[in-house]
Amino acid sequence: MDLTVGPNQFFWSAETWAAFYTDLAQSLVDRVVVGELVCSKRLPFYQDRIPETISRLVEAGKEVALTSLALVTLKRERKLTADLAAMGVMVEINDLTALAHLPENCAFAVGPLVNVYNEGTLKWLAAQGARRICLPPELPIASVKALTQVASDLGVAVEVWGHGRLPLAISGRCYHARLHGRSKDNCQFACEDDPDGLDVLTGDGKPFMAMNGVQTLSDSYACTDHQIDLLRQAGVSALRLSPQSDGFLKLCKLYRQRLDGDLPRGDLERSLRTADPNVRLSDGFLTGSHGAEWSGESGARSAAS
C-alpha cells in the first residue's frame, strides 16, 4: 500500500505551510495533495507558494494533486475552481463543481468529501475519468470491500482515510467567526490560532469535535493501525494521512514501517501514545458501532470512553 498525504485542512501561516511541504518532499510518502480544501479566504496568504511547492514535490519524486474547495458557492470560488486544471497537475475534486469545470477526457482524482457510497457512483465517476478515489471516511469495511472490487476492474485506485482528525461536516457558516462574535466576511482569521482545530467539548467536559472555520472535525484522530491488514485484504491501495502541525513526518515514517511489516500491529498506537499520552484515537467507522469507537488495546482511553 502507498501513502498519500491529504490536503492540509487547517490555516497555517505561509511560512509554516511552505516549510511543511519542504520537509515532506524528503519523506517516504508517495503522493501529496496540496491546495485549499476548507476556506477560500485562506488561499491568498499562501497561493503564490503553491507552484514552487508543487515543483519541489515533483522533483522529489512525489505524485502531486491539487484539491478543489470542499464547498463552492461564491463567484470567485467558482473561478478558482475553474482554474484548477490549468495548474498542470491532477485535480482532486472535493466538490463536484470541480468536475463540471474539468476539460473532457481529463483524468482526475476524487477526494473523501465527494459521496462515493456505491458501485454505481464509482462506475459513473470512473467513466468520467476518475483514476483514484479516496472513499468517504464514514464507510464501513463491507462497503470498502465491495467498492475496491469494482474499482480494480476499472483501473481505479482506492484510498481510505488512514490517519488524522476526520472531516465530519462543512457549512456555510464559520464557527470560528461565530465563536468570536463575528460574521464570516469579517472573521479576522480566527481559525489561524488553532493549527489543528479547536477542541469542542460536551457540557460535562468530554472531548467530542473540533472546529476549523467552516469545517467540523472529529475530536479523535482516526488511526488505522489495527485495520491495515483488513484494508490490504480488501484491496485498498493507499492510506491517506491528514496533515497535523506536530510530528507529522514521524507519523509518515511510522505508517511506512507499519505498511512494510517493520512495525507489528499495535506498535504504531504505542508509539503515538508514547509521544502523546493523552492522544485520542478512533477507527469505529470501519469496523465499530460508530465512528468515535476505538478498537485498540488502550480502549479505556479511547475517544468513545
Binding site: 464547498l71 459521496n115 465530519l168 461536516a169 469505529g284 465512528g291 468515535a292
Partner: peptide, 16 residues
C-alpha cells in the same frame, strides 16, 4: 441543517 446537507457525518460519528 446548519451543515451542508448530504455532507455531514456527525451523527454516525456519535451513533453509527
Amino acid at each position: 441543517c446548519v451543515m451542508a446537507e448530504g455532507r455531514c457525518s456527525l451523527s454516525s460519528y456519535a451513533t453509527g
